[in-house]
Amino acid sequence: MSRFGFIHDKMEIKFLVLYIMARVASPIDFPTLTELTMCDEGVDYFDFAEAVAELVETGHMTLEDGLYAITDKGRQNGEACESSLPYSVKHKCNANLATVNGILRRNAQVRTEVLPRPDGSLTARMTLDDEGGNIMTIELLCVNRDQAARLSEGFQAKPERVYNEVLAALLDKEDSKDE
């Protein structure tokens, strides 16, 4: 069956995958890689899945803990072949990558974890970073996993608000005069 689009065979899919992986901000899972690769109507899912497996097998990419990353070999070979990808495909990829990279960068800068304490309680550790490093880390005592999960979810949803409100509370001179 004839397919529409610019990408038509497994080799072209491999070039596309390497192009994407060389530009993604951090390792990604299979569904994200699938979404980014399906930017051209000519990409067949089954050929894509085989191409990804072969790229891992040949050492062009790694798969660790469910996340794919490009290797130096993959980066070099992909760079040599990326000129064969049509401009329109690269343009679509770059637009999709901008969105995904924004999410990946934010997720790398906003982290939470729940740590057990010797007394059976828990600590919710919430961290906010920027390009220069850590901006704020808050550790709060939690009596159960539900409370720790709720704190973590709230922080993940609004880390900037938490940061700004902590700063406002610490820098508010009127409160310190009243005491």
Rank of each mutant, 00 (worst) to 15 (best):
M1T: 14
F4I: 15
G5P: 00
F6R: 06
F6W: 10
I7T: 01
V17A: 06
Y19F: 15
Y19C: 10
I20H: 08
M21D: 02
S26A: 13
P31H: 09
P31I: 07
T32G: 05
T34V: 13
C39N: 08
D40N: 03
D40P: 01
F46P: 04
F46W: 15
A49S: 12
A49W: 05
E50D: 15
V52D: 00
V52A: 03
A53E: 13
A53R: 09
A53K: 10
E54L: 11
L55P: 00
V56G: 03
G59E: 08
M61N: 02
L63Q: 03
G74Q: 02
G78Q: 03
C81S: 14
H91G: 04
C93W: 04
L97T: 11
T99G: 05
T99E: 14
I103A: 09
R105S: 07
R105G: 02
R106M: 08
A108V: 07
Q109F: 09
Q109M: 15
V110M: 11
R111V: 15
T112I: 09
T112R: 06
E113S: 15
R117V: 07
R117G: 08
D119R: 11
L122G: 00
A124S: 05
R125C: 05
M126N: 03
T127V: 10
T127K: 05
T127I: 13
D129H: 08
M136C: 13
M136H: 07
L140H: 04
L140S: 10
V143P: 02
N144I: 02
D146A: 12
A148I: 00
R150C: 09
S152G: 06
S152Y: 01
S152V: 05
E153V: 06
K158V: 10
P159V: 07
V162R: 00
E165H: 12
V166Y: 08
L167A: 06
A168R: 12
A169W: 13
L171V: 01
D172V: 00
E174I: 05
S176Q: 15
S176R: 14
D178A: 13
E179G: 10
E179F: 04
